[in-house]
Write a protein that binds this DNA or RNA. Sequence first.
DNA 1: GCGCCAGCTG
DNA 2: CAGCTGGCGC
Lengths: 263, 263
Amino acid sequence: MKIATWNVNSVRTRITHICDWLQANPDVDVLCLQETKVIDADFPHTPFTDLGYQTYIYGQKSYNGVALISRSQLQNIQTGFASVLGDLEDPSLDEQKRLITAKFSDIQIVNMYVPNGSEVGSEKYEYKLRWLKLLKNYLKTLLSQNNDVLICGDFNVAIADLDIYDPKGRENKVMATDIERETLAQVLNLGFKDVFRKFETAGGYYSWWDYRSGGFSRNRGWRIDYHFLTQSLCDRATACVIDVEPRKLTQPSDHTPVIVTID
Amino acid sequence: MKIATWNVNSVRTRITHICDWLQANPDVDVLCLQETKVIDADFPHTPFTDLGYQTYIYGQKSYNGVALISRSQLQNIQTGFASVLGDLEDPSLDEQKRLITAKFSDIQIVNMYVPNGSEVGSEKYEYKLRWLKLLKNYLKTLLSQNNDVLICGDFNVAIADLDIYDPKGRENKVMATDIERETLAQVLNLGFKDVFRKFETAGGYYSWWDYRSGGFSRNRGWRIDYHFLTQSLCDRATACVIDVEPRKLTQPSDHTPVIVTID
DNA sequence: GCGCCAGCTG
DNA sequence: CAGCTGGCGC
């Protein structure tokens, strides 16, 4: 089976790219989208259903929004933190639509769009850290209910210097500070493995290139989109690849898909 | 020789349509554009110069803006009222970039974008009437200096009921009120002939179809784009046609070109 | 740079 | 309905 993650930066603007990619990759079972940027009432279901996919969505106006595009029906769809954790101490952490989970075969798939954090020390940065801390509780609960958990999406954190084209000064840059890395590590320490690194230990592999500064042509990217798998699931993985092709198209998303293959 | 007028509703958005049209109509000597909607620094010259045209522009940010696209060099380019009339009593009438004139062969071509007027009785409506009154003085001056004058562009007035798909209630509609018609008639009475009517006396011929209400497919249009010629020039005209083809393209301007042929 | 929106004009 | 702007977010 294949599971893919792709921050599409507007599902409506990118609909042709996404459908073209699905047709070129017919063996992808579940595609996890982030930054759909559309309210549920306006989500473009038919392009996907016409191709034989089911859609599971959790969107809002203008910002954020996640979706699952699946060849087969998924079970137990849950959206936001509260659907898993019950009422939140800090309900603001569920105001933005960033989290959807569902069962696919024996795997609990969690599709997320971690807050960006804007600037180090900002209110948005603090929100990001609080969000990641609550994510740990959320995943603890899911792990208590499921043997195999796959979390994927746009994590907005480069977990190692190897994952940034130029790590110089990264300590003060959002998406690369020690505190962000440590807070995310606390989450991953629950038992999640970066499956991409099972197959590739070199640098120079990225999933996001800023629109600004023409970073893609010079491969000035960051690896911030991941699949993290629980150990037994990671053991079953046979490949994890970043498909840079969609980033080469006209009017591309700034992110490109990452696909994991599991036996 | 052929002279064309076309309100393109943004020269940058429409650049492909315009260049395609020029290539399909290589015998057009001068194309008069309105609503270029771009400051001079950002005008797309190269698409035109690459095709062998010269460009003469008079633009502003966001709104209005006119340009002359010519196969040969034009003489005596003058922009705005003041370039012809000297200092204006009401300088606000030159704040919007709506007027460019130049000599092509023996013909003084005046390319204009008459104010729309917004709503009857509004401040913008009064501005339109004041603008047309000043236009009369402006043309009087040009007529004193030139034998053959051609004025063309988007006049934002349907000069007869025949020029509106449904003239019912037109007396209270901007672009069709008696006062607008009379004010424009005062201008045309200087000696200008509606050359289109030299060849076609029937209704049902329009140059603009509102984007709203899907008016084009039902031919719910208005004829508000004209070539008005001084008598001797009108006598030399052998054709005047409205080319509806560009209005059928995807993402079209709401106006379509009008072309006059002069021997 | 490239999405989004609201608010403007026609 | 389809241009434009300015402001926000990343």
